[in-house]
């Protein structure tokens, strides 16, 4: 039996420390496996060595506190959406988790997998977590590192030897929304994503955060639009107009499914959609 076929190349630790010990030897971290198992479709060799992290209870934890929500990296999209359904501020994240891919994929694909797969540009959770000012914890044998989403997304391609363990989302007096544009009604990856949050305020838009996903290779904040809207009165047309004048902040990626120009061209419509959603959420509050 070759080494690649020996059992030790596939390990199933039950603790984070065990997982960190198991890394190395060409073993990839495998959570929901939905990305790695598709390697042959991408023309890559099928995975032969892995650390399966689905049996680590700590990674499955979800805690909803007064000030923050903590999600283990192994939480699936389905579990995430179910657990946060009662947290009004995180409606955008619930939307992202409950619309991504399709139901059986959502049942296994994890938060950590979605955030760590740098080659997957169309993930729904990253832009939403960017907008929510989330922070991630990355554990290595030398200790843990705490990063904000922007830092993490910039670094993730080069991180190795460690494990994303949890994501923390601050709570507060805000609302969030998520708009995604697949080419069909559902079931394909969105060609563009806009995530946003802002504070509840009687008259003016405050602490506006807008993040854009799938348009470029890595999601990022739409800082120009955030600045343009910050402190302004809520006016849907003005918001969409601002978005329209600022789409040149992004260079859309060309893909088999859509050219770059299309991804940026649809951004104002998605911005209008999220802000419409936000305003409806504010109108609903007790």
């Amino acid at each position: 039996m070759t080494e690649a076929n020996s059992g030790s190349d596939v390990l199933r630790p039950i603790t984070i420390a065990g997982a960190l010990d198991a890394l190395g030897g060409g073993r990839q971290i495998m959570a929901g496996a939905t990305w790695l198992m598709r390697a042959p479709v991408r023309g890559e060799a099928p995975p032969k060595a892995a650390v399966l992290i689905g049996s680590i209870p700590e990674l499955q934890q979800i805690s909803i506190g007064q000030d923050q929500v903590t999600l283990g990296a192994g939480v699936t999209h389905t579990k995430l959406a179910e657990a946060l359904a009662g947290v009004p501020a995180l409606k955008g994240l619930v939307t992202a988790a409950s619309r991504a891919a399709n139901p059986p994929i959502r049942a296994v694909a994890t938060l950590g997998g979605n955030l760590c797969t740098a080659a997957f540009a169309a993930g729904d959770l990253s832009p939403q977590l960017l907008a929510l000012d989330a922070r991630v914890t990355y554990a290595t044998k030398d200790g843990t590192q705490d990063m904000d989403m922007s830092q993490f997304l910039a670094a993730r391609g080069n991180l190795s030897g460690g494990l994303l363990t949890r994501v923390r989302i601050p709570l507060g007096n805000f609302r969030s929304a998520h708009a995604r544009l697949p080419l069909r009604k559902a079931g394909d990856y969105p060609v563009a994503i806009v995530s946003a949050r802002m504070d509840q305020n009687e008259s003016l838009m405050r602490r506006v955060r807008i993040a854009v996903g799938s348009v470029e290779a890595t999601p990022r904040r739409w800082s120009g639009l955030e600045a343009a809207l910050e402190g302004q009165p809520y006016d849907l047309k003005a918001i969409a107009d601002s978005a329209g004048s600022l789409t040149n902040e992004f260079t859309g990626r060309d893909g088999v499914e859509a050219d770059g120009w299309y991804r940026t061209k649809v951004l104002p419509a998605l911005v209008r959609q999220v802000f419409e959603d936000l305003s409806m959420q504010f109108a609903e509050r007790p």
């Binding site: 496996a33 198992m37 598709r38 995975p47 689905g54 049942a107 296994v108």
Partner: peptide, 11 residues
Amino acid sequence: PTMSCLLPVIA
């Protein structure tokens, strides 16, 4: 319901 094409047998 799970897609068995993407699930490693060990899981």
